[in-house]
Structures are given as structure tokens and as C-alpha cells.
């Protein structure tokens, strides 16, 4: 499984990150617990816009599922992180190349000015969960360094 390529973006790709998080409890316990419902949105893929809803609780990612645009509101995310496919691809490749995001490809770096990524939500205090628990989310995305990724 570890050597099989997983396509990005896909439910399987985010599940691979979740599996890595869940098997490293001590590492994530050191960062602090995570309580968030997050949507990672990849726009302008060959198949259109893709949304992945993830539920974090404690030191684990409990749920990963793909959502249609119409299902996002019902999923009730704290925050949505959105960017186009090209930027996602560049970030994932950068993490693979460096073992973790380099200074130009951290989540905060990509999101701060609202481009190329944007973090948003209905309620600013719930969007702020992204900043409150960012260390864990960065570590979660950095897990992709260990995932053999192919790109659609």
C-alpha cells in the first residue's frame, strides 16, 4: 500500500494522510488536540471543483469524504481552505521534495493574503480554528511527503 501511487485529488489521498496521522498519536499529542470540521477545496481540476470534508477530533482524523458543492453547507465546516489545482499540485510536490513544506509553501504563507489559497467560512471565530490549530493542520498536510502521489 505504501508504495502504491494515490491520485491527487481524491478521497484516498486524504485518507492516506489521515492514516498517517492516526498512527502517530504521540507526535500529534505533542501539538495538542484538534477539533475541527474542515473542507479542503481544489478548484479547476480536470473534473471541475472537488471538495473533501475531514473531521478531526482529539489526535485523529476520524472521517474523510468527498462532498459536492451542495453538500458543503450540510457538512457544516468550521473552515474551508480553497485553492486551484495548480497551486495544490505545486504545494504537494514541494512537500514531497523537501519532506515538509518549504518557507514559500506553508499553509499560512499560501493563505494569508487570500491568494493563491483562501481560508473562509460563515463564522470568523470558527475560521479562526484554522489559526488556533494550524500546527496540526500543517503537520497533517506535510504527511503527504510520505505518500506516493500521482496527479490527475
Amino acid at each position: 500500500m505504501a508504495n502504491q501511487k494515490v491520485e491527487f485529488p481524491s478521497t484516498q489521498w486524504f485518507q492516506a494522510l489521515a492514516a498517517r496521522m492516526n498512527e502517530q498519536r504521540a507526535k500529534y499529542q505533542n501539538f495538542g488536540f484538534v477539533t475541527a470540521r474542515a473542507v479542503f477545496r481544489v478548484t479547476a481540476t480536470a473534473a471541475g471543483n472537488r471538495n473533501f470534508g475531514l473531521v478531526f477530533d482529539g489526535f485523529e482524523c476520524l472521517e474523510v469524504r468527498e462532498l459536492t458543492d451542495g453538500e458543503i453547507a450540510q457538512f457544516d465546516p468550521d473552515w474551508t481552505m480553497e485553492g486551484d489545482y495548480a497551486t495544490w499540485k505545486e504545494m504537494v510536490q514541494n512537500i514531497k521534495a523537501h519532506g515538509e513544506a518549504d518557507p514559500d509553501h506553508t499553509l499560512n504563507r499560501l493563505c494569508l493574503l487570500g491568494h493563491p489559497f483562501r481560508v473562509h467560512g460563515e463564522d470568523q471565530t470558527r475560521v479562526d480554528v484554522f489559526y488556533r490549530q494550524l500546527f496540526s493542520f500543517q503537520a497533517f498536510i506535510d504527511e503527504s511527503a510520505a505518500v506516493e502521489t500521482s496527479f490527475a
Partner: peptide, 25 residues
């Protein structure tokens, strides 16, 4: 957040990322 944005090495990046979490609370 801007400090993390500007950081050019893992030390400065992680310092601001940790602090940012506290401040957001």
C-alpha cells in the same frame, strides 16, 4: 500570521506558527 508568512527558515516559521495559535485563542 505575517511573521510566519515572512519567515525564511523552519525556526522562525515554527515560532510564529506556535504563537499564532495562542493568540487566536
Amino acid at each position: 500570521r505575517f511573521g510566519e508568512f515572512l519567515g525564511r527558515n523552519p525556526c522562525d516559521k515554527e515560532m510564529f506558527r506556535r504563537i499564532m495559535q495562542d493568540e487566536a485563542r
